[in-house]
Computed example of a mutant assay.
Amino acid sequence: MNITFYSMEKLRRQLEENQEEFIAFCEEESREKPRKLARQLAKHKGQPVVLLCGPSGSGKTTTANRLAEELHALGFPARAISMDHYFLPAINPNVPRDKNGEIDFESPHRLDIPLLSKQMEDIFACRPIYVPYYDFPTQSRKPGFLFQRQPDEFVIFEGIHALNPLVTGAALDFSSRIYISVRTRLRFENGECLHPSHIRLMRRLLRDSRYRGRSFLETMDLLPSVTAGEEDHILPFKRFADYELDSFVPYEGAVYAGLLTETNLPSHRLTGKLRRFLRFLPSLSQESVPGDSLLREFIGGLED
């Protein structure tokens, strides 16, 4: 997928001229991507497992659910399953550790690879399985649910290691593979750009504070390990993807401008650049974001 650029000056004009119309346009464009992809997947019924991979903050969960909805609309039952539920319990002696003895959350060995591999083969063969449930607060595995794929049903596995042959190698023979990330760069007329990884960082700052109990500073402190994990365990396997999706939503920066402020962004070499870009945009309230928007994966629901 080619890298694209979006003019900051143009974006500000669009937001100032007609916010509601522009938001509606962006949302429809965002929904059309999985809609179009679902039509492609439906042509390959012999590949009922869909592997959806992308780095942290790429919008995997929302996209997996939208793909399932679009496949349903085309007449194919579909289910999305998060690979996070295949994490090894924290007490398991095989849980990978970093040099400080802490759990290495970026390692593919964080997953119960034998169980995941077997269940993917069972799913392909329409054999019944018990899909596990991972309880994040206790870092333990709990009873999940009984599942048996029906003929013509698609199962979408989403996770950061979904394209890694070490993790899902057996499924490569009967799967379609998707790589999703932010690919668009925001650019000022003077040529200064906000890299897609910075957009994903803003998403993670908000998501982690709302759903994972992390302060902005804690998320920034984790950034080196997250970045290293992407370079070591995600990007090398992007080449296995059959399809790529850009999850960038043009107006999202204006939403973040009201949530990531001068007072709550910690001092960091990256936050100065974020501030410059966010200050340039008019601020949009959370209420302006549709309840089913991909952005809700990061900023939370309307009740927040």
Score class of each variant (00 low, 15 high):
Phe248Asn: 13
Val255Gly: 03
Leu194Gln: 08
His195Lys: 12
Pro196Ala: 11
Tyr243Glu: 07
His195Phe: 12
Arg200His: 09
Ser225Cys: 04
Asp246His: 08
Val226Cys: 04
Pro224Gln: 09
Ser197Leu: 13
Leu217Phe: 11
Ile199His: 04
Val249Ala: 02
Ser225Asn: 10
Thr227Pro: 00
Phe240Cys: 01
Leu260Gly: 03
Ile234Ala: 05
Ile199Thr: 15
Asp221Ala: 14
Leu223Met: 12
Glu252Ile: 05
Glu252Leu: 10
Glu252Phe: 09
Arg212Val: 09
Ser247Cys: 07
Thr261Met: 01
Ser197Lys: 14
Gly258His: 04
Gly191Pro: 10
Glu192Tyr: 02
Gly258Met: 02
Arg212Ala: 06
Lys238Pro: 00
Thr219Tyr: 06
Pro196Asn: 10
Ser247Thr: 13
Leu223Arg: 14
Glu252Val: 10
His233Ile: 03
Thr261Ala: 01
Ala257Thr: 04
Lys238Cys: 06
Arg207Asn: 11
Glu230Ile: 09
Leu223Glu: 12
Leu206Gly: 02
Tyr256Phe: 15
Leu259Val: 02
Phe240Asn: 11
Lys238Asp: 00
Arg212Asn: 09
Lys238Thr: 11
Glu262Thr: 05
His233Met: 06
Ser225Asp: 12
Met202Tyr: 02
Met202Phe: 07
Phe237Asn: 04
Gly258Thr: 05
Ala257Leu: 03
Leu217Trp: 05
Thr227Gly: 00
Phe240Lys: 07
Gly258Phe: 01
Phe240Ser: 04
Leu194Ile: 12
Asn190Cys: 07
Leu205Ala: 11
Glu244Val: 01
Leu217Ala: 15
Arg203Gln: 12
Ile234Pro: 08
Arg214Pro: 02
Pro236Leu: 09
Phe237Tyr: 15
Phe237Cys: 03
Phe248Asp: 10
Glu231Tyr: 11
Asp246Trp: 10
Arg212Phe: 11
His233Lys: 04
Leu235Gly: 00
Glu218Pro: 08
His195Pro: 00
Glu192Asp: 13
Ala241Glu: 08
Ser197Ile: 07
Gly229Ser: 09
Met220Phe: 12
Ser197Pro: 00
Arg210Asp: 00
Glu231Trp: 08
Ala241Tyr: 06
Leu217Ser: 14
Met202His: 03
Tyr251Ser: 06
Leu235His: 14
Ile199Asp: 02
Leu245Asp: 02
Met220Tyr: 05
Asn190Ala: 00
Tyr251Thr: 03
Leu260Tyr: 03
Leu217Pro: 01
Ala254Asp: 02
Arg207Ile: 08
Ser247Trp: 07
Val226Ile: 15
Phe237Trp: 14
